[in-house]
């Protein structure tokens, strides 16, 4: 599935109330490592048709950042049926992202 950008207001509906697995890439435009990880997340999305992949700008999402203890970016959050199942901070390899969503 293609990657979509969401904002904090959509978070509840798009993530918490969503069924199945959702991968959220928490990033910001000023963050170099986030710009490196972005294309890899895109690739994972393209190769996993059933997976819902969303991007959330950390600068505009203080409430979500606080709720999920986001202290550094990029952070990847994996939700299964609306519950946080996995969290990874910093740059990780494509293989490691695939492990997260298993």
């Amino acid at each position: 599935m293609s990657v979509r950008e969401i904002n904090e207001a959509d978070f509840e509906a798009e993530v918490v109330k969503a069924e199945g697995t959702v991968l959220v890439d928490v990033w910001a435009p000023w963050c170099g490592p986030c710009r490196m990880l972005g294309p890899v997340v895109d690739e994972v999305a393209e190769e996993n048709a059933a997976l819902k992949v969303l991007k959330l700008n950390a600068d505009d999402s203080p409430r979500v950042s606080m709720q999920f203890g986001i202290e550094a970016i990029p952070t990847l959050l994996v939700f299964k049926d609306g519950k946080l199942a996995n969290k990874s901070v910093g740059l990780i390899s494509k293989a490691a992202i695939l492990d997260l969503i298993k």
Binding site: G32, P33, M36, P39, V40, L91, S93, K94, A95
Partner: peptide, 10 residues
């Protein structure tokens, strides 16, 4: 930082 992106390195 270096990221093994799968088919390339960033």
């Amino acid at each position: 930082n270096i990221l093994p992106a799968g088919s390339y390195f960033s």
